[in-house]
Amino acid sequence: MHFSVSKSIARIIAAAGIAGMAIMASGASAQDYPDHEVTMLVGFNAGGATDVIARALADQMEKALGQPVVVVNKSGAGGLLALNEVARAKPDGYTLMLSTATPLTASRSEPEAPTVDDVEVIGIVNLDGSAVLVKADSEFKTLDAFFEAAKDKPNSVVMAHAGVGGSYYLNALVWEATTGAKFKYVPYGGGSEIYPALAGGHVESASAVLSPAKQLIGSGQIRALGVSSAERNPSFPDVPTFKESGIDLVWGAPKFVIAPKDTPEDVIAVLSDALDQAMNSEEMNEFWAKTGYEKFYLKRDEATQYLQNAQKSINEAFANADGK
Protein backbone atom coordinates (compact mmCIF):
# COMPACT_ATOMS: atom_id res chain seq x y z
CA MET A 1 0.00 0.00 0.00
CA HIS A 2 1.42 3.37 -0.90
CA PHE A 3 0.23 6.59 0.59
CA SER A 4 0.89 10.15 -0.28
CA VAL A 5 -0.44 11.52 2.96
CA SER A 6 2.25 14.15 3.37
CA LYS A 7 1.60 15.32 -0.17
CA SER A 8 -2.11 15.45 0.49
CA ILE A 9 -1.55 17.52 3.59
CA ALA A 10 0.74 19.82 1.65
CA ARG A 11 -2.06 20.21 -0.86
CA ILE A 12 -4.61 21.11 1.79
CA ILE A 13 -2.29 23.75 3.16
CA ALA A 14 -1.69 24.98 -0.37
CA ALA A 15 -5.43 25.14 -1.02
CA ALA A 16 -5.97 27.06 2.18
CA GLY A 17 -3.33 29.50 1.06
CA ILE A 18 -4.83 30.23 -2.33
CA ALA A 19 -6.97 33.10 -1.16
CA GLY A 20 -4.05 34.79 0.50
CA MET A 21 -1.75 34.11 -2.40
CA ALA A 22 -4.23 35.46 -4.90
CA ILE A 23 -4.01 38.80 -3.15
CA MET A 24 -0.24 38.66 -3.05
CA ALA A 25 0.11 37.59 -6.67
CA SER A 26 1.99 40.30 -8.49
CA GLY A 27 2.74 40.87 -12.12
CA ALA A 28 5.81 38.68 -11.75
CA SER A 29 8.07 38.54 -14.76
CA ALA A 30 8.39 35.27 -16.60
CA GLN A 31 11.95 34.68 -15.39
CA ASP A 32 10.70 33.65 -12.00
CA TYR A 33 7.46 32.05 -13.19
CA PRO A 34 6.16 30.16 -11.36
CA ASP A 35 7.20 31.35 -7.93
CA HIS A 36 4.05 30.15 -6.15
CA GLU A 37 1.34 27.62 -6.72
CA VAL A 38 -0.78 27.48 -9.83
CA THR A 39 -4.55 26.99 -9.70
CA MET A 40 -6.22 24.65 -12.15
CA LEU A 41 -9.96 25.21 -12.28
CA VAL A 42 -12.37 22.43 -13.09
CA GLY A 43 -15.98 23.23 -14.03
CA PHE A 44 -17.36 20.05 -12.49
CA ASN A 45 -17.47 18.38 -9.08
CA ALA A 46 -14.74 16.28 -7.51
CA GLY A 47 -14.90 12.65 -8.59
CA GLY A 48 -16.11 13.25 -12.15
CA ALA A 49 -14.08 12.46 -15.26
CA THR A 50 -12.79 16.02 -15.70
CA ASP A 51 -11.75 16.22 -12.06
CA VAL A 52 -9.96 12.87 -12.10
CA ILE A 53 -8.03 13.78 -15.25
CA ALA A 54 -7.21 17.27 -13.94
CA ARG A 55 -5.77 15.90 -10.73
CA ALA A 56 -3.62 13.30 -12.48
CA LEU A 57 -2.37 16.00 -14.85
CA ALA A 58 -1.76 18.48 -12.02
CA ASP A 59 0.37 15.90 -10.18
CA GLN A 60 2.67 15.59 -13.17
CA MET A 61 2.68 19.28 -14.13
CA GLU A 62 3.78 20.30 -10.66
CA LYS A 63 6.83 18.08 -11.01
CA ALA A 64 7.76 20.01 -14.13
CA LEU A 65 6.88 23.44 -12.76
CA GLY A 66 8.46 22.96 -9.34
CA GLN A 67 5.40 24.55 -7.72
CA PRO A 68 2.14 22.95 -6.55
CA VAL A 69 -0.68 22.82 -9.08
CA VAL A 70 -3.91 22.97 -7.08
CA VAL A 71 -7.16 21.72 -8.59
CA VAL A 72 -10.18 23.85 -7.60
CA ASN A 73 -13.67 22.59 -8.45
CA LYS A 74 -15.95 25.44 -9.40
CA SER A 75 -18.93 23.57 -10.73
CA GLY A 76 -22.12 24.81 -12.30
CA ALA A 77 -23.78 25.87 -15.55
CA GLY A 78 -21.95 23.15 -17.50
CA GLY A 79 -18.54 24.59 -16.66
CA LEU A 80 -19.46 28.18 -17.52
CA LEU A 81 -18.77 29.55 -14.03
CA ALA A 82 -15.21 28.22 -14.08
CA LEU A 83 -14.74 29.37 -17.68
CA ASN A 84 -15.84 32.90 -16.76
CA GLU A 85 -13.40 32.89 -13.88
CA VAL A 86 -10.39 31.85 -15.96
CA ALA A 87 -11.31 34.22 -18.80
CA ARG A 88 -11.45 37.14 -16.36
CA ALA A 89 -8.41 36.10 -14.29
CA LYS A 90 -5.16 38.01 -14.35
CA PRO A 91 -3.13 36.72 -17.33
CA ASP A 92 -0.09 35.74 -15.27
CA GLY A 93 -0.14 31.96 -15.69
CA TYR A 94 -1.33 31.29 -12.14
CA THR A 95 -4.92 30.54 -13.10
CA LEU A 96 -5.51 27.72 -15.57
CA MET A 97 -8.49 25.54 -16.36
CA LEU A 98 -8.94 22.03 -17.65
CA SER A 99 -11.78 22.89 -19.97
CA THR A 100 -14.36 20.71 -21.62
CA ALA A 101 -16.28 21.81 -24.73
CA THR A 102 -17.83 24.71 -22.75
CA PRO A 103 -16.08 27.56 -24.67
CA LEU A 104 -17.20 25.96 -27.95
CA THR A 105 -20.86 25.74 -27.01
CA ALA A 106 -21.82 28.11 -24.20
CA SER A 107 -22.21 31.19 -26.44
CA ARG A 108 -25.20 29.53 -28.11
CA SER A 109 -27.46 30.27 -25.16
CA GLU A 110 -25.31 32.90 -23.39
CA PRO A 111 -24.06 35.48 -25.93
CA GLU A 112 -21.60 36.93 -23.39
CA ALA A 113 -19.87 33.59 -22.72
CA PRO A 114 -16.14 33.36 -23.53
CA THR A 115 -15.19 31.39 -26.64
CA VAL A 116 -11.91 29.70 -27.62
CA ASP A 117 -10.81 33.07 -29.06
CA ASP A 118 -11.13 34.66 -25.63
CA VAL A 119 -8.59 32.34 -23.96
CA GLU A 120 -5.11 30.92 -24.66
CA VAL A 121 -5.06 27.21 -25.43
CA ILE A 122 -2.05 25.40 -23.92
CA GLY A 123 -2.89 21.95 -25.28
CA ILE A 124 -5.53 19.23 -25.70
CA VAL A 125 -5.01 16.23 -23.42
CA ASN A 126 -7.95 13.92 -23.85
CA LEU A 127 -10.70 13.11 -26.29
CA ASP A 128 -13.21 10.43 -25.48
CA GLY A 129 -14.90 9.12 -28.57
CA SER A 130 -18.63 9.50 -28.28
CA ALA A 131 -20.75 6.47 -28.91
CA VAL A 132 -24.19 5.63 -30.21
CA LEU A 133 -25.69 3.33 -27.59
CA VAL A 134 -29.01 1.51 -28.00
CA LYS A 135 -31.16 -0.53 -25.65
CA ALA A 136 -30.64 -4.29 -25.70
CA ASP A 137 -33.80 -5.14 -27.68
CA SER A 138 -33.54 -2.22 -30.10
CA GLU A 139 -34.46 -3.00 -33.71
CA PHE A 140 -31.22 -1.32 -34.85
CA LYS A 141 -28.29 -3.64 -35.39
CA THR A 142 -25.96 -1.37 -37.34
CA LEU A 143 -24.97 2.27 -37.23
CA ASP A 144 -25.97 2.69 -40.85
CA ALA A 145 -29.51 1.41 -40.30
CA PHE A 146 -29.80 3.59 -37.24
CA PHE A 147 -28.96 6.83 -39.01
CA GLU A 148 -30.99 5.84 -42.08
CA ALA A 149 -34.09 5.38 -39.93
CA ALA A 150 -33.56 8.73 -38.23
CA LYS A 151 -33.17 10.36 -41.64
CA ASP A 152 -36.16 8.69 -43.33
CA LYS A 153 -38.50 9.39 -40.45
CA PRO A 154 -37.24 12.56 -38.76
CA ASN A 155 -38.01 12.91 -35.03
CA SER A 156 -39.03 9.28 -34.72
CA VAL A 157 -35.91 7.84 -33.09
CA VAL A 158 -35.61 8.79 -29.42
CA MET A 159 -32.10 9.78 -28.32
CA ALA A 160 -31.13 10.52 -24.72
CA HIS A 161 -28.31 12.89 -23.86
CA ALA A 162 -26.75 14.20 -20.65
CA GLY A 163 -27.91 17.83 -20.95
CA VAL A 164 -28.07 20.44 -23.70
CA GLY A 165 -24.96 22.29 -22.50
CA GLY A 166 -22.93 19.11 -22.58
CA SER A 167 -20.53 17.50 -25.01
CA TYR A 168 -22.70 14.52 -25.83
CA TYR A 169 -25.68 16.53 -26.97
CA LEU A 170 -23.28 18.52 -29.08
CA ASN A 171 -21.90 15.29 -30.56
CA ALA A 172 -25.40 14.23 -31.52
CA LEU A 173 -26.00 17.56 -33.29
CA VAL A 174 -22.77 17.05 -35.24
CA TRP A 175 -23.99 13.57 -36.24
CA GLU A 176 -27.25 15.12 -37.42
CA ALA A 177 -25.42 17.71 -39.52
CA THR A 178 -23.22 14.99 -41.05
CA THR A 179 -25.83 12.34 -41.75
CA GLY A 180 -29.04 14.32 -42.26
CA ALA A 181 -30.71 12.45 -39.44
CA LYS A 182 -33.12 14.14 -37.01
CA PHE A 183 -33.54 12.76 -33.53
CA LYS A 184 -36.19 13.17 -30.87
CA TYR A 185 -34.11 14.30 -27.92
CA VAL A 186 -34.72 13.40 -24.29
CA PRO A 187 -32.57 15.33 -21.80
CA TYR A 188 -31.19 13.53 -18.76
CA GLY A 189 -29.33 14.96 -15.77
CA GLY A 190 -25.97 13.34 -16.55
CA GLY A 191 -24.36 10.13 -17.72
CA SER A 192 -25.32 8.33 -14.54
CA GLU A 193 -29.00 8.69 -15.49
CA ILE A 194 -28.50 7.75 -19.15
CA TYR A 195 -27.15 4.25 -18.65
CA PRO A 196 -30.02 3.03 -16.42
CA ALA A 197 -32.57 4.58 -18.81
CA LEU A 198 -31.01 2.57 -21.66
CA ALA A 199 -30.52 -0.62 -19.66
CA GLY A 200 -34.13 -0.41 -18.47
CA GLY A 201 -35.31 0.03 -22.05
CA HIS A 202 -36.92 3.42 -21.36
CA VAL A 203 -35.15 5.16 -24.26
CA GLU A 204 -34.26 3.79 -27.69
CA SER A 205 -30.77 5.27 -27.95
CA ALA A 206 -28.27 7.65 -26.38
CA SER A 207 -25.24 9.71 -27.17
CA ALA A 208 -22.76 8.99 -24.40
CA VAL A 209 -19.23 8.01 -23.52
CA LEU A 210 -18.37 4.30 -23.75
CA SER A 211 -16.12 3.57 -20.77
CA PRO A 212 -18.66 3.89 -17.90
CA ALA A 213 -20.96 1.45 -19.73
CA LYS A 214 -18.30 -1.23 -20.05
CA GLN A 215 -19.98 -3.75 -17.77
CA LEU A 216 -23.49 -3.06 -19.04
CA ILE A 217 -22.31 -3.56 -22.62
CA GLY A 218 -20.40 -6.69 -21.61
CA SER A 219 -23.49 -8.20 -20.01
CA GLY A 220 -25.68 -7.39 -23.00
CA GLN A 221 -27.94 -4.87 -21.23
CA ILE A 222 -26.82 -2.09 -23.59
CA ARG A 223 -25.45 -2.34 -27.14
CA ALA A 224 -22.94 0.04 -28.74
CA LEU A 225 -23.49 0.60 -32.48
CA GLY A 226 -20.46 2.75 -33.15
CA VAL A 227 -17.97 5.26 -31.83
CA SER A 228 -16.96 8.46 -33.59
CA SER A 229 -13.26 8.44 -32.69
CA ALA A 230 -10.47 7.91 -35.22
CA GLU A 231 -9.65 4.38 -34.04
CA ARG A 232 -11.51 1.67 -32.17
CA ASN A 233 -11.33 2.01 -28.39
CA PRO A 234 -8.85 -0.64 -27.12
CA SER A 235 -11.25 -1.55 -24.28
CA PHE A 236 -14.10 -2.05 -26.78
CA PRO A 237 -12.52 -3.89 -29.70
CA ASP A 238 -15.91 -4.99 -31.06
CA VAL A 239 -17.36 -1.50 -31.43
CA PRO A 240 -16.73 -0.16 -34.96
CA THR A 241 -15.83 3.45 -35.71
CA PHE A 242 -18.14 5.70 -37.73
CA LYS A 243 -15.63 5.61 -40.58
CA GLU A 244 -15.72 1.83 -40.76
CA SER A 245 -19.51 2.07 -40.94
CA GLY A 246 -19.32 4.40 -43.91
CA ILE A 247 -19.89 7.71 -42.10
CA ASP A 248 -17.02 10.08 -42.76
CA LEU A 249 -16.75 11.69 -39.35
CA VAL A 250 -14.08 11.71 -36.66
CA TRP A 251 -15.43 13.56 -33.68
CA GLY A 252 -15.26 13.59 -29.91
CA ALA A 253 -15.41 15.75 -26.85
CA PRO A 254 -11.99 17.24 -26.08
CA LYS A 255 -10.55 18.27 -22.71
CA PHE A 256 -7.91 20.96 -22.93
CA VAL A 257 -5.83 23.24 -20.75
CA ILE A 258 -6.53 26.96 -21.13
CA ALA A 259 -5.12 30.18 -19.64
CA PRO A 260 -6.47 33.75 -19.72
CA LYS A 261 -6.10 35.74 -22.95
CA ASP A 262 -2.87 37.79 -23.20
CA THR A 263 -0.85 35.54 -20.92
CA PRO A 264 2.78 36.43 -21.81
CA GLU A 265 4.33 34.18 -24.47
CA ASP A 266 7.24 33.14 -22.24
CA VAL A 267 4.84 32.06 -19.49
CA ILE A 268 2.88 30.06 -22.06
CA ALA A 269 6.14 28.47 -23.17
CA VAL A 270 6.88 27.35 -19.59
CA LEU A 271 3.36 25.93 -19.28
CA SER A 272 3.57 24.19 -22.66
CA ASP A 273 6.84 22.51 -21.62
CA ALA A 274 5.32 21.42 -18.33
CA LEU A 275 2.29 19.99 -20.11
CA ASP A 276 4.56 18.23 -22.58
CA GLN A 277 6.60 16.68 -19.79
CA ALA A 278 3.42 15.63 -17.97
CA MET A 279 1.80 14.09 -21.04
CA ASN A 280 4.95 12.12 -21.86
CA SER A 281 5.43 10.86 -18.30
CA GLU A 282 5.14 7.20 -17.50
CA GLU A 283 2.65 7.97 -14.70
CA MET A 284 0.28 9.71 -17.10
CA ASN A 285 0.42 6.83 -19.59
CA GLU A 286 -0.34 4.42 -16.78
CA PHE A 287 -3.25 6.64 -15.80
CA TRP A 288 -4.84 6.51 -19.26
CA ALA A 289 -4.43 2.74 -19.43
CA LYS A 290 -5.94 2.18 -15.99
CA THR A 291 -8.92 4.52 -16.22
CA GLY A 292 -9.89 3.88 -19.84
CA TYR A 293 -9.99 7.62 -20.62
CA GLU A 294 -8.40 8.17 -24.02
CA LYS A 295 -5.17 10.11 -24.40
CA PHE A 296 -5.31 12.66 -27.20
CA TYR A 297 -2.41 15.06 -27.02
CA LEU A 298 -2.11 18.12 -29.26
CA LYS A 299 0.34 20.93 -28.54
CA ARG A 300 -0.60 24.60 -28.54
CA ASP A 301 -0.70 25.41 -32.26
CA GLU A 302 -2.24 22.15 -33.40
CA ALA A 303 -4.67 22.30 -30.50
CA THR A 304 -5.78 25.84 -31.34
CA GLN A 305 -6.22 24.84 -34.98
CA TYR A 306 -8.17 21.74 -33.95
CA LEU A 307 -10.52 23.71 -31.73
CA GLN A 308 -11.10 26.39 -34.36
CA ASN A 309 -12.07 23.69 -36.85
CA ALA A 310 -14.26 22.09 -34.21
CA GLN A 311 -15.93 25.46 -33.64
CA LYS A 312 -16.81 25.62 -37.35
CA SER A 313 -18.36 22.15 -37.29
CA ILE A 314 -20.23 23.02 -34.11
CA ASN A 315 -21.60 26.26 -35.56
CA GLU A 316 -22.79 24.34 -38.61
CA ALA A 317 -24.37 21.73 -36.36
CA PHE A 318 -26.17 24.43 -34.36
CA ALA A 319 -27.35 26.14 -37.55
CA ASN A 320 -28.58 22.78 -38.84
CA ALA A 321 -30.38 22.06 -35.57
CA ASP A 322 -31.95 25.53 -35.34
CA GLY A 323 -32.96 25.63 -38.98
CA LYS A 324 -35.40 22.77 -38.83
Binding site: N45, A46, G47, G48, A49, D51, V52, G190, S192, S211, P212, K214, Q215, L216, G218, S219, Q221, K290, T291, G292
Partner: peptide, 19 residues
Amino acid sequence: TAIILGAFILHGVAPGPTL
Protein backbone atom coordinates in the same frame (compact mmCIF):
# COMPACT_ATOMS: atom_id res chain seq x y z
CA THR B 1 -22.05 7.68 -4.57
CA ALA B 2 -21.44 9.54 -7.84
CA ILE B 3 -18.26 10.88 -6.23
CA ILE B 4 -17.36 7.45 -4.87
CA LEU B 5 -17.65 6.05 -8.42
CA GLY B 6 -14.75 8.36 -9.32
CA ALA B 7 -12.61 6.52 -6.76
CA PHE B 8 -13.46 3.17 -8.40
CA ILE B 9 -12.61 4.40 -11.89
CA LEU B 10 -9.32 5.83 -10.69
CA HIS B 11 -8.34 2.44 -9.35
CA GLY B 12 -9.22 0.79 -12.63
CA VAL B 13 -12.28 -0.97 -11.21
CA ALA B 14 -15.38 -0.80 -13.38
CA PRO B 15 -18.33 -1.73 -11.18
CA GLY B 16 -21.11 -3.62 -12.94
CA PRO B 17 -22.96 -6.91 -13.26
CA THR B 18 -19.82 -9.03 -13.30
CA LEU B 19 -18.23 -7.39 -10.25
